[in-house]
Each structure stands twice: as C-alpha cells, then as structure tokens.
Computed example of a mutant assay.
Amino acid sequence: MLNALEVVTTVVIGVMVGVEFAVSFVMNPILNALPDDSTQRGHAHGGRMLGAVMPVWYIGSLVLVTVWAVAGWGTAGIGLVVTAGALLLLSVVMSLLLLVPINNRNKTWTPENRPADWQEQINRWNRYHYVRVAVIIAAFTSLVAALV
C-alpha cells in the first residue's frame, strides 16, 4: 500500500510541476505576445480557470506527502519526503501571501476596468510564480530521490 501511495503522490506532484512549468515557460510567453486586450483577457481567463483548480491540487499534494511521511515514518528516504512536504507547505504559503491576491484582482479585470499598472502586476505575479515553480521542482526532486 505504501508503494502505491508513493507512486500516486509522485505522479500527482509531477503533473502539477509540469502544468506550472508550462504556465511560466509556454503559456505566459504566448499570452504576452498577443495584443494588449487579448493579453489581459487571456491572463484573466487563465487566472479564473487555474485559480479554481490549483488550490485543490496544491493542498491535495501537501496532504498526500503528509500521509506518505506518516505512513512511511522510519523508512529509508523519509527525510527527503519531509523536506518535500516542507517545500510544498512553503509553496502554499507563497501562493496565499503573494500570488493569490494578484490573481484575485487579475481575474476580474476587463479592458474597460483594468488598472493602469495591470502589466506590472502581471509581471510581479510571473516573478513570484518562477520562484514557486523552483520550489515545487525541488519538492518533486526530493520525492523522486526518496524513491531510489
């Protein structure tokens, strides 16, 4: 049973890392290359769509790692699992304090009501997101290392 939990947890977090990596290095460059109104509308739509899914994914991943750490306590590599859990907790805290407030504003903007500094706010979100992606990649790497 522990083996199944380890595989499911690693796959769930690996897919999350892939999605977040794609947001940073694929989707955002595509959106940013569009004309102003399309860029802002695309970011707002992405904020609404992913803003609904990612909280469940992040919290669910943290729960899976916590269950793995408890169920596997005393086994080889558990320190790496705990490290991954700490990094995922950091990513959740970063999200709540830095990214979610910007996203909550962004997802309500339209070309008619967006603030003058909307691009600066999107750029700030992107910078925070790069750091968050690095944190969840480190968490994923810790989990993979715990498996071997």
Rank of each mutant, 00 (worst) to 15 (best):
M1C: 10
M1V: 11
M1R: 10
L2F: 15
L5E: 00
E6Q: 14
T10N: 05
V12A: 13
I13T: 07
G14Y: 08
V15G: 07
V15P: 09
V15A: 14
V17M: 03
V17N: 02
V19F: 13
A22L: 13
V23H: 04
V23P: 00
S24R: 02
V26W: 04
V26A: 08
M27D: 00
N32E: 09
N32R: 10
A33F: 07
A33T: 09
L34Q: 13
P35N: 04
D36M: 11
D37K: 00
T39H: 12
T39D: 13
T39V: 00
Q40A: 13
Q40C: 07
Q40M: 15
R41W: 02
G42K: 11
G42P: 04
H45C: 11
R48Y: 02
M49Q: 08
M49G: 06
G51R: 07
G51N: 03
A52N: 08
A52K: 12
A52L: 12
V53H: 00
M54T: 13
P55K: 07
P55S: 05
W57Y: 03
W57M: 13
W57A: 15
Y58H: 10
Y58I: 10
S61M: 04
V63Q: 05
V63D: 03
V65Q: 01
V65G: 02
V65I: 15
T66V: 14
T66C: 10
V67H: 08
V67M: 10
V67F: 06
W68G: 03
A69F: 10
A69D: 11
W73L: 10
W73V: 06
G74W: 06
G74E: 10
T75I: 00
A76G: 13
G77Y: 04
I78K: 03
I78N: 15
I78C: 03
L80V: 06
V81N: 03
V82E: 09
V82T: 11
V82N: 05
A84T: 10
A84H: 05
G85Y: 04
A86Q: 00
L87P: 02
L89T: 07
L90N: 02
L90C: 12
L90W: 06
S91F: 05
V92W: 14
V93Q: 11
M94W: 08
S95M: 15
L97Y: 11
L97R: 14
L99T: 07
N103M: 02
N104M: 05
R105Y: 01
R105F: 03
K107A: 03
T108R: 14
N113C: 02
R114G: 02
W118V: 05
Q119N: 01
Q119F: 05
Q119P: 02
Q119E: 08
Q119R: 14
Q119I: 01
E120S: 12
E120R: 09
I122C: 06
R124S: 04
W125A: 05
W125S: 00
N126M: 08
R127Y: 04
R127N: 07
R127C: 01
R127I: 11
Y128N: 06
R132Q: 09
I136Q: 04
I136A: 01
I137T: 08
I137D: 01
I137Y: 08
A139F: 03
A139Y: 00
F140A: 01
S142C: 15
S142A: 15
L143Y: 06
V144M: 13
V144D: 11
V144R: 07
A146Q: 08
A146Y: 02
A146L: 09
L147Y: 00
V148R: 13
